[in-house]
Structure formats: C-alpha cells, structure tokens
Computed example of a mutant assay.
Amino acid sequence: MGGIGIWQLVIIAVIVVLLFGTKKLRNLGGDLGSAIKGFKSAIGEEKEQNNSVEKSSAEKNSDSLADNSSSAAEASSKATSKTKETDQA
C-alpha cells in the first residue's frame, strides 16, 4: 500500500514527458552523462596525481637515504684512514 507500483511510475513518466518534451529530456540526459564522465575523469586524474606525488616523495626519501648512507660511509672511511696514519706515525 505504501510503495509505488509500476502503473504509478508509468503515469509519472508520461506527465514528465508531456511537461518537458522529449527533446529537452534528451538534452538533459546528455548533459547529465557528460557531467558524470567529467567527474570520473577528474577523480582519475586526482588519483594519478596522488600516486605520482607519493612516488616522487618515495624517490626523494630513498635518494636522501642513499646520500646519507654514502656520506656516513665516506666519513667512516676518512676516520679509518686517519687512524691508520696515526698508527703509522
């Protein structure tokens, strides 16, 4: 009793077509479809940008870690060479 049946939906559809006309409804459907496509592409672009930002930040972190480890290795080799020079003298 409380639900909308098939016949009520058909009557509503006929009234909407009579009020707005098929051409206007067709344009409305096309506009709605293009809006949905634009929304999906915007979301896809945002995800790609986030992924590229995450990748670039990960690359920067790995580069800085590599720089730090190479600096530490250089410092330890310098300290070792200084120790050897001191031992020889």
Rank of each mutant, 00 (worst) to 15 (best):
V17K: 08
L32M: 06
E74W: 14
I4Y: 02
E48T: 04
A13Y: 07
L25W: 01
E48Y: 00
S64R: 08
S71Q: 08
K24C: 12
I11M: 03
S81D: 10
T80I: 13
N50D: 08
W7R: 02
A42L: 13
R26M: 15
S69F: 02
A89C: 07
F39S: 14
R26D: 15
N51L: 13
L32F: 02
S56F: 03
G33E: 09
E46W: 10
E54M: 11
F20L: 10
A79I: 05
V16T: 04
Q88L: 13
D67M: 06
Q49I: 13
S57A: 15
L65Q: 10
W7N: 03
A79V: 03
N68T: 12
N68F: 08
Q88P: 05
G44Q: 07
K23G: 07
V17R: 10
S76C: 09
Q88E: 11
W7D: 04
K47I: 15
G44P: 05
G21P: 03
Q88D: 11
G33H: 04
S41R: 10
D63C: 03
L25Y: 01
V17G: 01
L65P: 04
S70Y: 10
L25D: 02
E45H: 00
K23Y: 05
V16G: 02
G3M: 04
L19N: 12
K23E: 14
N51T: 08
I4E: 02
V16E: 05
N27Y: 01
N61P: 00
G21S: 03
G5W: 10
N51R: 13
A79D: 01
I15R: 06
D67N: 09
N68C: 08
S62E: 07
E74Y: 15
A13W: 07
L19F: 14
G2S: 09
V17L: 12
E48N: 03
S69D: 06
I6Y: 10
S57T: 14
L19E: 12
A66Y: 04
